[in-house]
Design a protein around this nucleic acid. Structure first.
Lengths: 210, 210
DNA sequence: TGTAAACGGTACTGTACCGTACCATTTAAA
DNA sequence: TTTAAATGGTACGGTACAGTACCGTTTACA
């Protein structure tokens, strides 16, 4: 499976991918409302017949864009965390989380999902499940282990996971979304480190140094 | 000042307010793109001449909506915090913050600002300054005091404030925005309480009860 | 009561855009 | 080389919408 097709099939796949790539740029730059099928065509150079062959409507094209970008961008939040050290695991997860959220595609995806959530509820649900939901669920599973081993003193692992990730987000994400102001990598590292410090000091009494 | 005008002036103010109220509902329900001036008119029942007399364009109407709702909804985040107890202040600020963010108008305002930030950067800037920015700045000022009194051990008060508010937000806000799922008041209180516990245990060593 | 401002209703202009239809051209397979 | 599929280009239908123009009517103030 996943063999590289030849001939017509390969040609079709390439054309579809080309359209999808161009549409992603336009939809994410302009937003669903301002993006137009004509604009997509102007960039790919094809004909309307071909465009509507692969995507039967603007809505379907948007859904394909969201699905494709989600699969690609949110993948980093998917793998469950091993049972390494707490501090290391939290740091890794925090930086991974912020990396995804602050990437250009992550920001655009977030903006578009928030904007269109009321009109595409099933897309919003999928986005949440595969993105922030998966991240916090992953971390919550890790927390459950640590709680069972009496390393962490927390009441609700799921809530603790969401709160840690919220602390990592801080206002950094909001600033990037609203003001297009992305922080330097050093700032990201410091933010995550500070969040880990506060969280561990607040939940892992045995790790307190003095 | 702020006298109640009579006659023409009063009539104009009332008409303007009526249009603004109707437009707010429509724009916040449908979003900027899908909202139409005709829909606003259909709800108010007036004429286009009057509508365009008070708001010279759709953009200007949108700006007026955002400004008006911001003044009204974000006001709760404005007053600086007194120098009460830390736990009490944090709890108050956390619940106030979540209350604003999770209110119907707060959610709609957030959604619209995120969606239109690239096309209305100055509005986005104002929203951030008067909303999340003001909240974290207020809390940061409080933290600076507590740090000066050696009650809190934090490095960067501004970052600490943003992280505390981020922890309060958790995934609750995101769920409300994306999935239209608003938490019960009890959940909000528990979330804030848990955030306060973790934060204080992590930053105020003298308050640790253990 | 007269008068000017504000208002309601609606027709209209120009434009943008989604989606369809049609024909010519290119590409891949037989 | 022949044939069928895929594509490019473009014209078109239908609709929605921002903003303007013009009409008669209502309201407030002198």
């Amino acid at each position: 499976m996943d063999e590289i097709p030849d001939g017509h099939a390969r040609r079709q796949a390439a054309k579809r991918a080309e359209i999808l790539a161009a549409a992603t740029e336009i939809f994410f730059e302009e937003g669903y409302g301002r993006a137009s099928m004509d604009a997509v065509l102007a960039r790919t150079g094809g004909s309307k017949r071909t465009l509507y062959k692969y995507f039967r409507s603007k809505d379907e094209l948007f859904a394909a864009i969201v699905g494709n970008v989600s699969d690609r961008v949110l993948a980093a939040l998917r793998p469950p965390l091993g049972d390494g050290g707490i501090r290391e695991t939290l740091t890794t997860m925090g930086e991974r989380y912020l990396g995804v959220l602050l990437s250009p595609e992550g920001l655009a995806l977030y903006r578009n999902m928030v904007a269109e959530a009321p009109h595409f509820p099933e897309l919003a649900q999928t986005f949440f499940s595969n993105g922030p939901g998966r991240a916090s669920a992953n971390l919550a599973a890790f927390f459950r282990d640590q709680k069972a081993q009496a390393v962490l003193q927390i009441e609700d692992p799921q809530r603790a996971a969401e709160q840690f990730l919220g602390m990592v987000r801080g206002d950094v994400h909001l600033r990037a979304v609203l003001l297009a102001r992305k922080p330097a990598k050093a700032t990201v590292r410091k933010t995550v480190a500070a969040a880990v410090d506060i969280f561990l000091s607040g939940t892992a009494p045995d790790l307190r140094e003095g």
